[in-house]
Computed example of a mutant assay.
Amino acid sequence: MLETLVDAACALPPLRTAVVHPCDPASLAGALQAQSRGLMQAVLVGPRARIAEVAQQAGLDLAGTELIDAPHSHAAADRAVELVRDGRVAALMKGALHTQELMQAVVARESGLRTGRRMSHVFALEVELYPRTLFITDGALNIAPGLLHKRDIVQNAIDLAQATGVATPKVALLSVSEEVDPAVTSSLDAAALCKMADRGQISGALLEGPLAMDNAISPQAAAAKGISSPVAGCADILLVPDLASGNMLVKQLVYLSGARTAGLIIGARVPIMLSSRADGVAARMAACALAQRLLQHRAAKP
Rank of each mutant, 00 (worst) to 15 (best):
D7F: 00
A9W: 02
C10H: 01
A11Q: 08
L12R: 13
A18Q: 03
V19T: 06
D24K: 12
A26L: 15
L28T: 08
A29T: 14
A29E: 12
L32T: 09
S36M: 07
R37M: 09
V43C: 07
V45K: 02
G46H: 07
R50Q: 11
V54C: 06
L60A: 03
L60F: 01
D61L: 09
D61F: 03
A63Y: 03
G64F: 09
L67A: 08
V84Q: 01
D86C: 12
D86T: 11
R88S: 09
R88P: 00
V89Q: 03
A91Q: 06
L97Q: 05
L97K: 08
H98P: 02
E101C: 12
M103P: 02
M103N: 04
A105H: 03
V106M: 08
V107E: 07
S111M: 14
G116H: 08
M119C: 07
A124S: 04
E128L: 13
P131W: 12
T133P: 02
I136S: 04
I136G: 02
N142E: 08
G146M: 07
G146F: 02
L148F: 05
R151E: 05
I153E: 03
G165W: 04
G165F: 03
V166I: 15
V166R: 06
A172R: 09
E179R: 14
D181M: 15
T185E: 13
S186P: 01
A192D: 04
C194H: 03
M196L: 13
D198C: 06
R199T: 10
L206R: 15
E208M: 14
E208R: 14
P210H: 10
N215P: 00
A216Q: 10
I217T: 08
I217R: 04
S218E: 13
P219F: 10
G226N: 09
S229F: 09
C234T: 13
D242Y: 12
D242V: 15
D242W: 07
L243G: 01
A244K: 14
A244I: 15
Q252L: 13
L253C: 06
Y255F: 11
L256I: 11
A259G: 07
T261F: 02
T261N: 07
T261R: 10
I265K: 01
A268F: 02
P271T: 11
M273I: 12
S275T: 15
G280S: 10
G280F: 06
M285W: 01
A287F: 03
L290H: 01
Q292D: 04
H297A: 10
A299D: 08
P302H: 12
P302V: 13
